[in-house]
Write a protein that binds this DNA or RNA. Sequence first.
DNA 1: AAACAGACCAAAAAACGAATATAGTCTAAA
DNA 2: TTTAGACTATATTCGTTTTTTGGTCTGTTT
Lengths: 198, 198
Amino acid sequence: MEKDEIIIQSIIDAAKKLIQQYGLSKTTMEDIAKAAGKGKSTLYYYFKSKEEIFDQVINQEMDDFFQTVKTAISKQVDASEMLKAYIITKIKTLKTKVNLYRFAIETDLHPEAINDLFIKLKNRYDNEEKKLIGSILKLGIDSKLYRAEIQAEIEILSELLVTCVRGVETEIVTHNKYKTLTDKADMLVNMLTKGIGR
Amino acid sequence: MEKDEIIIQSIIDAAKKLIQQYGLSKTTMEDIAKAAGKGKSTLYYYFKSKEEIFDQVINQEMDDFFQTVKTAISKQVDASEMLKAYIITKIKTLKTKVNLYRFAIETDLHPEAINDLFIKLKNRYDNEEKKLIGSILKLGIDSKLYRAEIQAEIEILSELLVTCVRGVETEIVTHNKYKTLTDKADMLVNMLTKGIGR
DNA sequence: AAACAGACCAAAAAACGAATATAGTCTAAA
DNA sequence: TTTAGACTATATTCGTTTTTTGGTCTGTTT
């Protein structure tokens, strides 16, 4: 890593820690500067605004999140197991992140600033997620696990799956129903593969 | 209808209209009284608090909502068609209600009062919805459309389906993706019955 | 009594202005 | 090139006053 990259990262890390402790709105540029052992104006040498720092913090967290899910998927042997791993890992990781930022969520959630943030994140990662699921389905077809006919509908099916998992996600995270997670994941994937019809 | 029932309903109707126009928090007891052509204290003769009036308004709307969905389901010939009708009618009806209360949602959504409301509604209707889906699945099994084995998992499967539909709901309502509604409903039910495995 | 109105009150919310904090800039020094 | 610190204009917080509002009480009409 270049020297200035190290400094940039140390600033982001300082901001990350402060956001976790105090929330977005209570974290000031001076707090960050002090925590990073720099003067405030130094931050403006590396970043053009407060928002840019926050964006980077959030992007790093999201990338980390996504990476965790991808790694879990890559360890599985077939498409159906991958889908299960996707659901379970995603929700578990979400839980730890929510826990990490639990205080920040409490203090910041009401202002609509956070709402804009969610929209930004959704636009950014929704598509990647669809593509990820799409590639798993494709793999399932190629390995003869899934019927070839679904190839034509793979796009909308991926979208549907992401949406369904998001429903499960919301249910589980907002109502603390973690016990049912693996059951639901198994059932969803079983239903998906075998169907309930006779 | 009894005379006092008529008056009670007229008060509720007045409140309903005002809530749609101005939102929960901007609708005062005096507004309601004036709109109903009564004095303020008269409202307290029929209702014990403002909250009680609002609860009744919301309950009526929810019952109406639920009734619309049930009616649509009852017109279908088999379980799978019922499930499709459930998804489509629910989301369409939701859309019209959201539209009706669009202004109220705008002005009221931030305060956490509305959050408590959602929790109340969820607790109240979630279970009814699960039972509804459960009964459709049961019907599907009885009519040999669905495999008998799923009988054992009917509870958790209903819960899963409600959750998935809620995901689709959120996606469609918050991102105005109404065009994809019937496609998604068809695909979800097809996936559910036939599965994608080979 | 049943159904209502209007004055009334305490408590909550809105309005307002002063004090404070904060994002971002500028200048200069290391 | 990198950093600090003083500086400013704007946004936020905070304490105070004023207004609004849910709810009660008293009394009047039906």
